[in-house]
Design a protein around this nucleic acid. Sequence first.
DNA 1: CTCGCTGTAACCGAAGCTGTTACAGCGAGG
DNA 2: CCTCGCTGTAACAGCTTCGGTTACAGCGAG
Lengths: 143, 143
Amino acid sequence: MAANSRLTIAVHALAWLALAHRRGRDVLTSDEVAASINVNPVIARRSLGDLRRAGLVAVRHGTGAGWHLARPPAEIPLSDVHEAVEGPPIFALHHTEPNLDCPVGRGIRPALSDVYAGAEQALHRELARTSIADVLHRSLEAR
Amino acid sequence: MAANSRLTIAVHALAWLALAHRRGRDVLTSDEVAASINVNPVIARRSLGDLRRAGLVAVRHGTGAGWHLARPPAEIPLSDVHEAVEGPPIFALHHTEPNLDCPVGRGIRPALSDVYAGAEQALHRELARTSIADVLHRSLEAR
DNA sequence: CTCGCTGTAACCGAAGCTGTTACAGCGAGG
DNA sequence: CCTCGCTGTAACAGCTTCGGTTACAGCGAG
């Protein structure tokens, strides 16, 4: 049960909001979003809250409340979604300080930090190549 | 304490083996490797075991036993190390099957699988640009 | 045969994530 | 101004993963 499905949940929610809007539904409640993803409504609200803080969705309160996209789906790259829901970095350095009597132990951390930063950037660039509109389009045709 | 430092530990071990070899030490014991990384010897052995299964290091048994690189350090890209010690994939799909009554729920999984596969490949390509020899060189000069 | 090191299994504690319950806050509509 | 539905968040349980630790069997050079 313990893996990073946060990006999956967020992308699913955004794609569903985009499709609902195209069908004339201006807003969806968190329960409706959760029902499509098949997760607990609180999970959906947590994800939607992350997306709201990142400015990707907006919420309406009161009677007839619900969520809607804050931008056209073609202008939401997955890299933005990833940033919005991002958990811990992919790679971690040593938990405990390496042995500084060893020449490798003294200099390896900045060297690895550079490599890991480059790897995260590469990931980010790759995710930027796909938008929510792309995901929605491929989901609908892949049937 | 719960992050992926496995790649860090493996790269550190390989760089230390490379440096020791350059200094005339043909093999290192797992205790010596662990002392430099400052981790428990069993952790070092688990990592070295992964690297041995991937053909990156070799082990000598009996008296005078120890570990040594199976290839020159310049021919060990970090992508190979990553493959050797790889844990779970970066992104996971839904834990439970999405709601198939929703058009998004029906088609989103293959669409996301493709995106995630591309992201992992981008990561792999980026890691392939750096070798153990590069890491060792930068570690020694970054003082 | 001895001795040092390898190779694993078993277990612990910490941390993260999902799932669940519970409850305060907000605002449109009556 | 009160009601009602939905949002927003805290608190907790259960599961999994990871590193840390102990313990022990296996192997081979001398």
